[in-house]
Design a protein around this nucleic acid. Structure first.
Lengths: 144, 144
DNA sequence: CGGTATCCACTTAGATACTG
DNA sequence: CAGTATCTAAGTGGATACCG
C-alpha cells in the first residue's frame, strides 16, 4: 500500500489555502480556551446571525424594517430574536428614537465590526467556490 | 462596502477591524451571486459543521470514533449526518478500509482546507474576544 | 413602526436497538 | 468499528393577533 506519511496535501493545495489565510493560526491553544471558543463559535454559527452580520457589514446602519426586507426569508420573530442575541453579545448596537411612528436603528458595534472583518475571507471563499461546491454535489449524487 | 467610506466608526475601530481582514472585500457583488453565497453560508453556518471543520483542520486525518471523541457533545447520528453533508459538498474526503473491524478515515479536501483557512481569522477573533463577549453579556443582563 | 404573546406544525436531535 | 433504522421529546420557527 502507498501510504503517504506526511504530505496529505500538495504544495499547491497549501498555497491556495494560504491565500485565504491572513494571520498566523496558533498551533497550540489551551484546551480550555479551545472549548470556550467552540462554544462561542457554535453560538454565532447559525443561519441568521451570519446573514445579518453580512447585511449590516454591507449597509452600515439599517432600520428594523429595512433589515427585514434585505434578509430574505427571515420572519419578524427570528429577526427580533437574533438581533437581541447579537445585541446581548455586544455585536450590534440598537438605537431607538422616541417618535411616532417608532424608529429603531441597528448597526454593528466595534466588536461586531471586527467579527465581520474576520468573516471577510469566508465570504470571499463562498463567492469563489460556490460553483465548486455545486459540482461536488452533483458528482456525489450521480455516483452509487 | 469599503469600511473607510462610512464615518460610523472611529479610525481606531477601523484599524482593529483591518487587523482581522486579509484580502479586500469586493465592493459591488452581483445580487444573484450575493443570494447564492448567502444560501451557501447558511448551509455551512451550523454548529457542528464549523466545529468539525476546526477539528479536522487541527488534526489532519481522523477516524470516525476519534472525531466523535474530539467533537464534544455530538451524537453519533449528527456526526454521521454532518460528515455526509460535508463530503457531499466536497469539503471532506472519506476513505474506507475493507478490514475487520472497519476503519474509516476523514480528512479535509483541498476545498475544505481553503475554507478552513478562510475561517482562521474567525477562530482568532473568538480567542481574542471571548472575554469581551462575556462582559457584554453580563452588562446587558445587569441593566433594565 | 417595531415590536410582544400565543398557538401550533414541523423539524431536529438524542436515545436505543440492531447490522455488516 | 462505523454505521443505519426507528421512535420520541424537545426545540424551532411561522402565522396570527394585538400593543405602545
Amino acid at each position: 500500500m502507498s501510504i503517504q506519511q506526511k504530505p496529505v496535501f500538495t504544495a499547491d493545495d497549501v498555497a491556495r489555502a494560504e491565500s485565504y489565510k491572513a494571520r498566523d493560526y496558533p498551533d497550540n491553544v489551551d484546551p480550555k480556551v479551545e472549548d470556550l471558543v467552540r462554544q462561542m463559535i457554535s453560538g454565532f454559527a447559525d443561519k441568521w446571525t451570519v446573514v445579518i452580520l453580512d447585511t449590516l457589514w454591507d449597509e452600515g446602519v439599517l432600520r428594523f424594517s429595512d433589515l427585514a426586507r434585505r434578509v430574505t426569508g427571515i420572519s419578524q420573530k427570528m429577526l427580533t430574536q437574533t438581533l437581541r442575541r447579537m445585541e446581548r453579545d455586544g455585536l450590534v448596537i440598537r438605537k431607538t428614537y422616541a417618535c411616532v411612528p417608532p424608529k429603531v436603528e441597528y448597526r454593528l458595534s466595534p466588536l461586531g465590526l471586527t467579527l465581520g472583518a474576520a468573516f471577510c475571507n469566508v465570504w470571499i471563499w463562498a463567492v469563489e467556490n460556490h460553483d465548486a461546491v455545486a459540482k461536488a454535489r452533483t458528482a456525489f449524487d450521480d455516483e452509487d
